[in-house]
């Protein structure tokens, strides 16, 4: 009981520390660092929404770039082609992400396990194909350039704070969600689908709803990304993006909320700095994939948890 209380307190302090750091950092770092932190937040949202499926519900999706990309492309098309405002672009991006996610979910949820991986992968390929070839809409290989933020958040730091507020909101929503009854059901599905079915839960519907939430928030990340990078191209939707999102979750720790954020932060910082030190950045990232899978299947959060239980045992003894 006391331990639990302490743990909660520890968590609160940790969250407060991270939040304080995030809020204060623009005051003492250069613009590039703010840009990098902004990237961390956006990929963090994508990783969080993927984790909802992967870590909490046990549905490994190999195609989250599709929903991210749908949000991104919808935003870019609305903003650059039709001159829509920030708010209008947001609404359309979310609707587009919802529609695409719903269709994909209907198809993908017919399968499970490795077939689910395969189907989500194939669906993402289809979306990539659209981005790449539907020239009149997406600009094809050219991508879409010149997406401007509204004047009041044109500035790097303002947009960073905007993203931070959104990310904090997403984090809060997700923590409420995973601690709710619904969240317990998610974990139940991960542990044993058949048992949940026997208990009278509509497993399919639960999975569908989780898929939808995950897809929507991925679309939100795509929306934020486009206004961040003011450019979108088929490479944003490609296989590697889906894989990177999976790596972020696995690296940080699936089935936790802090994990995906931690994973995305580490990944983004590495991605932006490795090539300052070595030409062999492909090998470095490749080895991270291999090492994480082999030696840290529960990610960094898993390590911390292990450490805690171990030390906790000696403490008691």
């Amino acid at each position: 009981m006391r331990g639990e209380l302490l743990a909660t307190r520890g968590r609160v302090i940790a969250i407060a520390a991270v939040l304080a750091f995030a809020v204060a950092s623009p005051l003492f770092v250069d613009e590039f660092s703010v840009l990098v932190l902004n990237q961390c937040l956006i990929w963090g949202i994508l990783a969080l929404s993927l984790d909802l499926m992967l870590g909490y519900t046990g549905m490994a999706s190999l195609g989250h770039a599709a929903y991210f990309g749908t949000g991104a492309y919808a935003t870019a098309i609305m903003s650059a082609t039709y001159g829509a405002s920030f708010g209008e672009a947001f609404v359309v991006a979310i609707i587009a992400a919802a529609v695409v996610t719903a269709i994909c979910a209907l198809v993908a949820l017919r399968a499970s396990d490795v077939y689910f991986l395969m189907i989500t992968f194939a669906l993402a390929m289809l979306i990539w194909g659209l981005a790449y070839r539907w020239d009149s809409m997406t600009g094809g290989e050219n991508g879409i350039a010149g997406i401007d933020r509204p004047l009041f958040m044109e500035d790097t730091i303002t947009y960073y704070y905007f993203t931070l507020i959104v990310a904090a909101g997403v984090f809060l929503f997700f923590s409420v969600l995973v601690h709710s009854c619904f969240g317990k059901t998610m974990v139940g599905i991960r542990e044993s689908e058949s048992r949940m079915r026997a208990l009278g839960y509509n497993v399919w519907l639960h999975k569908f709803i989780i898929y939808m939430i995950s897809g929507l928030f991925s679309g939100l990340a795509g929306f934020l990304w486009v206004y961040y990078n003011s450019y979108v191209a088929p490479t944003d939707v490609e296989l590697v993006t889906s894989f990177n999102a999976l790596l972020m979750v696995s690296l940080g720790g699936p089935g936790t909320l802090a994990g995906p954020l931690l994973g995305s932060t580490i990944f983004v910082i590495l991605d932006n700095s490795v090539n300052m030190f070595t030409e062999r950045s492909l090998t470095v990232v490749g080895c991270i994939y291999i090492v994480v899978v082999l030696f840290a299947p529960e990610g960094i959060m898993g390590f911390i948890k292990q450490l805690r239980t171990k030390v906790g045992e000696t403490d008691n003894g």
Binding site: L6, A7, R9, G10, I13, A14, A17, V18, I304, R308, V311, G312, D315
Partner: peptide
């Protein structure tokens, strides 16, 4: 105790 140490780590 330990938890605190972790906070100090963070």
């Amino acid at each position: 105790m330990i938890r605190k140490r972790i906070v100090f780590l963070v």
